[in-house]
């Protein structure tokens, strides 16, 4: 006659715990990957935001300097200490902190005088930042009023 009391297998409890831990670790690994990816993305966005802020300040400086000087070559000289004869477009290599860096550049700043109105008294300047591959990162246009006398002086200097 069979006894109604069955012998319990000693290893069952441990095996169940083992399987449970395996499942817990699997979910933990998936969650960890998602969390790490989120933090890496947050860090990258934070750095990009900081870089964008620097670019916006650099663009502001370029616009303010251009509105004071009225021409590109003097703007480039005041901002970065470089001399150029170009009057319509200048490209300046910059590093991550938007400082002039001809040897090791991360960004390219392009300043273009793209239009004029009121007989040349209102000049439009386009300021554009791009990466090494040519992708535009930040772009802004600004206008600067310059007097007729000032425009004539600028034109006679660079004609």
């Amino acid at each position: 006659m069979d006894s109604p009391i069955k012998a319990k297998r000693a290893g069952t409890a441990f095996n169940l715990f083992f399987v449970e831990m395996m499942i817990v670790l699997l979910f933990f690994g998936i969650a960890s990957a998602v969390i790490l990816k989120t933090f890496v993305t947050a860090d990258r966005i934070s750095r990009e935001s900081s870089r964008l802020e620097k670019m916006s300040f650099c663009a502001q400086t370029a616009a303010e300097t251009f509105s004071r000087t009225g021409n590109l070559s003097e703007t480039a000289e005041v901002m970065f200490g470089i001399k150029t004869d170009s009057v319509s477009e200048i490209t300046v290599p910059l590093d991550e902190s938007c400082s002039y860096s001809p040897a090791d550049s991360d960004l390219l700043l392009t300043m273009t005088v793209c239009g004029e109105e009121y007989d040349g008294r209102l000049l439009e300047l386009r300021i554009s930042f791009s990466d090494k591959d040519g992708g535009v990162l930040y772009e802004v246009s600004s206008g600067a009023f310059v007097s007729a006398a000032f425009t004539e002086r600028t034109e006679s200097t660079y004609e």
Binding site: F57, T61, E64, F150
Partner: peptide, 22 residues
């Protein structure tokens, strides 16, 4: 971390910037 920006001031010349001596 350094941030630089230039800003025009009104006492440095007139509104149109003719006083700039480049």
């Amino acid at each position: 971390g350094i941030l630089n920006v230039c800003c025009r001031i009104k006492s440095g010349g007139d509104e149109n910037g003719q006083s700039y001596k480049g």
